[in-house]
């Protein structure tokens, strides 16, 4: 017994190290268990509160550029709205009646941006108090940004599309061919598109948009354009490099999209799963 205690005390550093190492491994393993989620939520609230003042002063310094960008976007949206109104006028429907539209849009500011890690998580300044819920999609002025991961009353965290082991359903606008988009981790402006069959013809400069096959993103939101592709010698799928339209390194304002028909979609999917069992 004494021998046991002596060994225990002698190797206490090593044993303690092994114990904490175990905790570290559990923490970093991808399975999202309850404690990890709780801890991370705590982390995102603290870092949100900490970074808010810094973000505020930073955004004050960038006001000019931001205004310019917003003006451009406004201009574009106004143009689209005018065209849309003209179209709707013939049908006698109010285009902004929220009970008729499937999507609700919330705007939010990015408190913490991140694009250089292997798994990037952003923090927004809107939370469950503002109607933000888990799994809503987040888009920027020029395309998709990510999916809401967690919400606290005043902040929410977003899984960026620049996130290892995260795949997004995407399609080519010309041919309508579907593929999955993922990030290789090298460059925050480039992503890879895989699983596009070689029977589809593609060219450099083709536009990629969201596919709408998952319940996350609405269909047809622009993602990027093809900059390079390889035709494989074996196997039937292209390897395509896509340059994103959105500059994810200087995000300030984003839009969170609430898909009202999402629950319906999920129900249907569940039924389908049950039926095929």
């Amino acid at each position: 017994m004494q021998w046991f205690l002596t060994t225990l005390i002698q190797y206490k550093n090593f044993l303690f190290f092994i114990f904490l190492f175990g905790i570290g491994i559990v923490f970093s393993s991808t399975g999202s268990n309850f404690h990890r989620t709780k801890l991370q939520k705590f982390g995102h609230v603290i870092s949100g509160e900490l970074l808010k003042p810094i973000h505020n002063s930073k955004s004050y310094l960038n006001l000019n550029q931001t205004n310019e960008r917003l003006l451009k976007e406004n201009n574009h949206l106004r143009q689209e709205l005018l065209n849309y109104k003209k179209l709707e006028a013939s049908k006698n429907i109010d285009p902004l009646d929220s009970s008729l539209s499937d999507y609700l849009v919330h705007s939010a500011e990015v408190v913490r941006n991140s694009y250089a890690n292997a798994r990037n998580v952003l923090i927004l300044d809107k939370g469950s108090n503002d109607g933000i819920k888990k799994d809503m999609s987040v888009i920027g002025p020029n395309g998709i940004i990510g999916i809401i991961k967690q919400t606290s009353p005043n902040f929410s965290s977003v899984i960026s599309i620049l996130y290892q082991d995260f795949k997004i359903n995407a399609k080519l606008i010309h041919t309508g061919a579907f593929g999955s988009l993922y990030w290789e981790g090298r460059d925050p402006r480039k992503m890879m598109l895989s699983d596009v069959s070689v029977i589809n013809k593609i060219t450099k400069g083709d536009t990629i948009v969201t596919g709408g096959m998952s319940a996350y993103f609405p269909e047809g939101i622009p993602i990027g354009k093809i900059t390079e592709f390889e035709t494989p010698t074996s196997g039937g799928y292209y390897v395509i490099e896509v340059e994103l339209f959105n500059n994810l390194t200087n995000l300030e304002y984003v839009y969170v999209i609430d898909n009202k028909s999402r629950s319906e979609f999920l129900d249907l999917q569940k039924q389908d799963n049950n039926a095929s069992r």
């Binding site: 090593f14 190492f21 570290g24 970093s28 995102h44 990037n120």
Partner: peptide
């Protein structure tokens, strides 16, 4: 790790280096 939102890489590396 918590403040940065990364998944445990800093924890493991710093623990190992302190050991």
């Amino acid at each position: 790790d918590l403040l940065q939102g990364s998944s445990g890489s800093n924890t493991i590396a710093t623990l190992l280096i302190s050991f």
